[in-house]
Design a protein around this nucleic acid. Structure first.
Lengths: 150, 150
DNA sequence: ATTGTTAATGCAAATAACTTGCATTTATTA
DNA sequence: TAATAAATGCAAGTTATTTGCATTAACAAT
């Protein structure tokens, strides 16, 4: 890891400075990991790669979220998942067999929020979280193979 | 509480029997609470009303979910919310100020799943979870009143 | 109705995710 | 290079959820 792309590095440093966050190795590695895996990661996963204290990771995730560099994703009730927040709004497809997560570009843009605003009677709707659950191609193949050999 | 509607009672008893679950007072009260509040509830809330052990509530929720009578809702990373599963598929609007939850009838039926299937490349998509976050009318009014008096 | 079987309950204690307090270290900036 | 303010990491605390086990209650068969 730590194959940091320069453009991205620049942007990150700028954002950190603007947010008055110090540029530390751990913070950098954390962002790098999220950048390179391109998938939502659990705190566990991040610790393993970043090789730092749990507490530090939690605190960094919190401050990076406040800065808007990192976003939390709701994939599982048990643990939180985090991803870089720089991509545009999107949804997720989660494989119920292997846990694979695919990004899905925002299916209907802001139409969803508008429709929900009307349907809910709320004063405003600022965001939504849309997660799909199913079986990915790989698992589907594996599962059907298993069932024929049994 | 415990103003049990007969028709519903019948259905529940039938379902419990089919699932080989005993019909116990706690289990009944639990279902009754979910039926009458009509909102997703936290385990905390349920315990307060059902007046039973936490563990019992968790175990009942689990078996009732397996039976398909109860569904878990993803409103908050910290704690799980539960609701009766007998209503048709719907979404939720959650007020970020007071926590109020409004049901929203399924906005676009199965179209969402179909679109996600295509976009994700999955073998199949079985369900989705769609939550909207915003400010409800009541909070909006309260908040704007507060800001004018300050 | 009574009894036997099996599931439901509740207590104690464990686990797991996440948080807080505090002392030490490190990044910035003057 | 020194001063300062934030970042780190250890210990220990919370909180949600789970597990083990003994007791109790539901129900099916007598």
């Amino acid at each position: 890891m730590l194959t940091i792309c320069v453009i991205h590095t620049e942007k990150i440093i700028e954002a950190l400075k603007k947010g008055k966050l110090k540029i530390t190795p751990i913070r950098f590695k954390l962002l790098d990991v999220l950048e390179h895996t391109k998938k939502p990661l659990r705190v566990k996963d991040i610790i393993k790669i970043v090789k730092s204290d749990i507490v530090t990771v939690y605190r960094n995730l919190e401050s990076l979220m406040k800065l808007g560099l990192v976003g939390q994703v709701f994939l599982d009730q048990k643990e939180a998942y985090f991803e870089l927040a720089d991509k545009k709004h999107h949804h997720h497809a989660i494989c119920e067999n292997c846990g694979r997560v695919e990004d899905i570009r925002d299916l209907i843009h802001h139409k969803l929020n508008k429709a929900a605003l009307k349907a809910s009677g709320f004063a405003n709707i600022s965001r939504h979280s849309l997660e799909f659950f199913g079986i990915c191609k790989q698992c589907s193949a594996k599962l059907s193979k298993n069932s024929t050999t049994m």
